[in-house]
Amino acid sequence: MTKHSDEGSLFSSKKFTDWPTVKEALISKEIGGVFILAPLAMQLVADGVPIKVVYLGHRDGTGIVVGKDSPINDFGDLRGKVIAIPSRYANQNILMHKMMDEWGMPYDSIDLRELPPPEHPIALQTGSIDGYIVGEPFAAKAEVDGFGKVLYHTKDIWPEFISCVMVVRQDLIDERRELVQEMIDGIAKSGKWLDEDMQHRMDAAEVTAKHYYFQSPELLKHVLSKPEDRVKYTNLAPLQEDFDEIMELAFKIGVLSRRVAFKEYADDSFVRPLDQLDWGMDRLPREGGGQ
């Protein structure tokens, strides 16, 4: 697998397991950027960390999951239930509050509990929670393993839902703009490639399952195809209208310590029209040179 871009730059990833360490790594310049929860990026800027949201990771790709045989059939049935969320800074938390507003439910009508996403499916299976809201592939996990059902996909309740965003250090934007542009173009090209052909998605599931996520390829194939618009990788420009809505809701429920203006935390100048970007590649190369 090629590890550098067409231009020759190296882009490597570093896995983190908690948010405070990510924050420290950004401040100490150990990493140039990070895929991070959208409200957390806003709070980091509110805390004075010099970063900017430059692109999105994906659109949608989150589900509210309940037990397969549970009597929960709509959002109103979640009243009085224990529902796991990934983090108070997750947009999934904000979505739950948005839905409670829409259903006329007070915020204490659902017991929202922070739980690391990999633990969501097992917690549902063992009965310690009644449901969970999480990004993929953990929503699909309960479906594929046969003990859960997706009550709602975000595409049906908050279309074009934003979960993770790409943030980059301000000094990189100022001093190594070409490198940042190269990275954003690469993400955009990858997203366009993923969304233009189902076979591309199946290829990506095989490769990422093995090299990045260490999940079953079948689980990732389920995520990327059932239904096809469960998660999307185009329309990834950070749009002010979307972010203003998230920011206002986050401030209203106390996730953000203050209102943060879009220009304070976002820089959309790296976004290029997709018709100017193309990978020029059909199938992903495999080890050994095969297709």
């Binding site: 882009f11 990833s13 570093k14 150990e30 990493i31 950027g33 990070v34 996403p117 490198l179």
Partner: peptide, 13 residues
């Protein structure tokens, strides 16, 4: 040496 950019990620949302 090639230019390098390290991007962090948490494999969860």
């Amino acid at each position: 040496q090639r230019e390098e950019l390290i991007i962090g990620f948490l494999p969860v949302t």
